[in-house]
Nucleic acid binder design. Structure first.
Lengths: 198, 198
DNA sequence: CTATAAAAAGACCACATGGTCGGATTTACC
DNA sequence: GGTAAATCCGACCATGTGGTCTTTTTATAG
């Protein structure tokens, strides 16, 4: 029972750092001082192993960092701002940052493994739905301008977050974060409810 | 001479579609009906091969699609809008789209190969510098608001483009493009020179 | 035609990978 | 203590990989 958890935790760790195809099962086993037998007792294949990691660990991780923080009745723009700020801050402080784990896997498996892509896209959809819902609720509560296209805003937000996490891995992550947040606020200012017209 | 070009072209094609680590030299050679001898006569190693591809093909491709179109004396916001629109349109029409080639490679090599990362980041920097320059020129020419942080705007634009190209590969690329462009225009409206104050 | 070098062929090597399998060891339970 | 199931070991296999090396083909100039 504990072995299965350890395998999954270390698996996600290495898959995130080195990529799925560039991480061998032996890499994971070596790090845990386990043998092939232990692995194939718990999992059918490397793919099955990864899918279980997605469902057990990745989905929860995305939920706790990107979805749960934007739930609430306050101004969604404030919540999203803080959510992104926090997520990027942990990336800045992590000396070994490899970008957004979800976006990395999306990139790696796109066009290569449809089964895994379906599982990953499911997480993306959950994020998107929650973002749209939060924005619509914000519009209903008078925080957003009435003309805002919430689906479009969600797509724009997801895009910008995925992208900035890539840029942050290259150089000067703190500076990239600061610049990004300033323009995010700029964008939010342009879609928030205009107090003059209300 | 022609063989070297064919190798590089097919190499980039497959590296883009399947990733560097998941594309073997034999894959490329099989597609061209060539042998190992032909490959290692022209290139020292797989890594050397890829670096030459970056410098000879990738850099030019990025330049022609993302940099050259924004050079000019017109409103940079208009130029960037059209540039992004065109780039995404070709992605929409390409039934086999694997996202932004530059961002894909950045994701794949991050933390794995510093040499290649340096070459890729060089291209990113060139793009960034040209974006900042175009925005600053636009500010000087009265197209942008005086208070706009051009470096921040460039980071924001690069982020959002990288990200939306990831989202476009998953599902409904045309819809994603439409939504993205609408919010890009929204953002641009918020940083353009305010005719009321000028 | 021939000499010479560029270009390409393809057999070969050492190594790593995902996966299998029979057996050893531990654990839980009566 | 004994038994059976759960857990784990590690040798083994087929395949694929990047890379080397010798040999052959091709082109080019005298």
């Amino acid at each position: 029972m504990a072995t299965m958890q350890r395998l999954q935790n270390t698996g996600l760790e290495l898959f995130y750092a080195q990529g799925y195809y560039d991480t061998s099962i032996d890499d994971i086993l070596k790090k845990l001082d386990l043998s092939k037998g232990a692995f194939y007792y718990h999992f059918d294949s490397k793919e099955d192993f990864f899918i279980q990691i997605i469902q057990n660990l990745l989905a929860r991780k995305i939920y706790s960092t990107l979805i749960e923080p934007i739930e609430g009745h306050e101004n969604p723009l404030t919540l999203i701002t803080k959510c992104f700020d926090d997520a990027m801050e942990t990336a800045v402080h992590n000396e070994m940052d490899y970008g957004c784990i979800l976006s990395n896997f999306l990139t790696e498996f796109n066009g290569k493994n449809e089964v895994i892509m379906r599982h990953l896209n499911e997480i993306v959809t959950v994020w998107e739905v929650n973002l749209v819902t939060a924005l619509q609720k914000g519009k209903f509560n008078g925080y957003l301008d009435r003309h805002v296209d919430c689906e479009a805003a969600a797509t724009f937000l997801m895009s910008s977050y995925f992208g900035v996490r890539i840029l942050m891995t290259s150089a000067a992550p703190a500076s990239k974060k600061y610049r990004f947040m300033s323009q995010l606020r700029q964008y939010f200012k342009s879609i928030e409810a205009n107090p003059v017209n209300s």
